[in-house]
Structures are given as structure tokens and as C-alpha cells.
Design a protein around this nucleic acid. Structure first.
Lengths: 194, 194
DNA sequence: CCGACGGAGTAGACACCGTCTACTGCGCTC
DNA sequence: GAGCGCAGTAGACGGTGTCTACTCCGTCGG
């Protein structure tokens, strides 16, 4: 009951998310989504005038998931800033690992309407929160915290990407990302608590 | 003379590289390349059985260029390791900035034959050279140099990517990558000469 | 000298894609 | 109960990558 009848719009997005998780990006055609949703290939057009808008709606789901996972860590005041940054980073990499298709879509700039999409509006406050956290976690440094946060974010993203297609495991010889992650974090935040 | 008659194979690759630089990834269809080369859409098939193989040949050109730019820096023994790492990083980012289409293609894993392509065979020795350089440049640390090198590489790549589509300039407020690059390098290699 | 052969490129078909448009139901309102 | 409007259908269009049948033309063997 909750499965079929909540409007075609939502169903299309849901089908898209599932299809993406199951068969990856290359299966995520407009016509295939419509097929899986049991409607004709012209039906999506009423809700998503263009393929890009449908993909963007699907990606928005991914951003929401990732944002939720991260925001939860950001606002957890019980643990010290550094520990929160570590788990935040871990969540990011884990998201990329467990949702490879979604992660790919989310940053396939050419397939998304780069405006809205909660990438400007939704992730900028998230970034400023990251800046705060970095500022708290890193006692003192020459560089402004925004730059450190940006460098850290880029590092995280790069690791997620390169690890995702296997380049880094044979470069490092590691089987798990964790050591590399620790190395990167220590680089940006200074040595651990001790 | 050197322009037209060096075989269709080479011409297709050359046309592809130009087209990619001029009109970006989305213009790089098999048929368009054939059109620009002045042959029928079936002609490329004799030399590149599949679109993926043609794209891979084009990307290989990019890897060669990037590799040449980087290798030159790696083997320049006149400057100290740290300075070499800085220019290496700068070259990487500059390549991404000046050849955005090629850079995109080179890491569009889904469009390339992920084997050969000089990404395994060609860039692994390049990576070990990077490891050496890191080892020389960084006096002492807990993490093995391979991990540090991997983290650095990922950081570089992430910066190139995120900067490329404008996410980082409004996060940092910077107009140039250089400060961010310095921050990242200092993070991974320790504070400057001093 | 000339006929057969083979490689290089052509041209058309196929299935699939995203978009557009004319159309059909069907429920709802006046 | 008649009309209207919206949701979804179905087919066309131009584009794509792949496949295949074909033509052309240079080269080689007799």
C-alpha cells in the first residue's frame, strides 16, 4: 500500500534510487526508470520536464542521506571536535563505498542541474559547520580554517574517488581505507590526542 | 602535409583531442569525430572496434602529456625535493585547469578501458617516484611514505576536481588555487623550509 | 597484361536514447 | 449530465553506438 500509490513523482524517484543502487549509473535512463515504474516513457515528463531534472531529484535524495549522516555527527556535542571530524570523515567514505552509484551521480556535474539541488543551499551551511569544527579541533595554525577545511574536504573526496576505483589500494598496499584516512586527518589536523 | 596524411588512426585521435579541447566531453561522440575527420561513421571501427577504445586512445594522449609534465619535475635533481613537489602539484592543477575536457575524460572511469591505458603501467612508476620524493622531502613521520604520497595525491586530485567546478572558491573565498595548494602541501609535508 | 584478392572506407539497418506532440480516458465541477 | 482539465499513452523525430553487406581500388601472381 505504501509502495505503489504515493504519486508517480515520488515513485519515479524511488525507482530511480533503487535502480541506481542495483544496476549503476548506466542503467539510469529515463525510459528504463519509466519502465520499472510501470508507466510509458512519456509519463515522467509531466513531473520532470527533462532527464536532468529527474536525475537531479534522485541525486537530491543522495545529498539528503549524506547530509543527514554528516549533520548528525556535526551537532553531537558530547564528543570532542577531533573525534567528530574522524567519524564525519569515516561516514563520508562509507557513504561512497556503500552507495557507489549514488556517489557517482551526485558528482556527475554534467548530468545535474548544478544550481539548487541542495548543493549550494544545502551543503554550504554544512561546510561552515565543518569550518567551525576544524577551528575547534586544530589548536593553532597559519592558514585560515576555511582553507584547512576546504583542503580536508578535497582530500576526503579525492580519497573516496580514487579508492572507489581501486587506484589507492595498490598504491598503498592497504586493504582498508582507515589507515590512509588517519594519515590524511593527521596531516590536516596535526598529530592525534596523545 | 603533416596534417592530413598520417593514417586515419592517428587523425582520429588528433581530431578527438582537438574536439575535446574545443567543445568538451559531450561533443566527443564517435560519429562527430568521424565527421570532423571527414570519414563515414563506420570508418573508425577498423582501428577502434568500439567507442571506448577510441576514447581510451584519446585519453592516453592526455596521460602522456600530464605524465611528461610531471616526470620532468620528478627527475630534476637540481632543486630540493620539497620544491619539486610544489611544482609538481602546481603542474597537476594547471593541467586540470587548462585542459578541463581532457582531465574529465581521463578520469571518466566508465568511458575508458580501465586496463592498460597507461594508468596501471604508466602511472605506477610515476607514483613510486612520488613516494621517493615524499620520503626525501619529509624528514620524519609516523606514516609510511606510500600512504603519505597516496594521501597527497588524493588531496591534489580532489582539489583539482572541486576547484574545477567552482565549489572551493566560494568555500574559501579565494580567487586563486595557490593558497589552498600551499595549505594542503604544508599539511602533508610539514611546515615550509624555515 | 590482366584478373583475383584483400584491406579501407561507405552506407544502411538496428535497437536504444531523450524530447516533443497529438491523442485518449476519466474524474470533477458547474 | 455536459464539459473541462489533468494524467498518462503512443508514435514520431533526430541522435547515438554497433553491426553487416557492399564497393572501390591498389597490389600481387600468373
Amino acid at each position: 500500500m505504501s509502495d505503489a500509490d504515493d504519486g508517480l513523482r515520488a515513485r519515479l524517484v524511488r525507482v530511480g534510487v533503487d535502480l541506481l543502487a542495483r544496476d549503476g549509473m548506466q542503467a539510469l535512463t529515463l525510459r528504463e526508470i519509466a519502465r520499472q515504474a510501470g508507466v510509458s516513457h512519456g509519463a515522467p515528463r509531466r513531473y520532470f520536464p527533462t532527464h536532468v531534472e529527474l536525475l537531479s531529484a534522485i541525486a537530491r535524495e543522495g545529498f539528503a542521506d549524506l547530509g543527514a549522516a554528516i549533520h548528525k555527527v556535526l551537532r553531537d556535542r558530547r564528543r570532542d571536535p577531533r573525534a567528530r571530524l574522524v567519524t564525519l570523515a569515516r561516514r563520508y567514505l562509507e557513504f561512497a563505498r556503500t552507495n557507489p552509484g549514488m556517489f557517482e551521480l551526485m558528482f556527475r556535474h554534467d548530468l545535474l542541474e548544478s544550481n539548487r539541488l541542495g548543493l549550494r543551499e544545502g551543503s554550504l551551511p554544512l561546510f561552515t559547520a565543518l569550518v567551525d569544527l576544524v577551528e575547534q579541533a586544530r589548536p593553532v595554525s597559519g592558514a585560515p580554517p576555511q582553507r584547512v577545511a576546504a583542503a580536508l574536504w578535497a582530500n576526503l573526496h579525492g580519497i573516496a574517488l580514487l579508492w572507489g576505483w581501486g587506484s589507492l589500494q595498490l598504491a598503498t598496499g592497504d586493504r582498508d581505507v582507515e589507515p590512509l584516512l588517519r594519515t590524511a586527518l593527521e596531516a590536516h589536523l596535526g598529530p592525534g590526542k596523545r
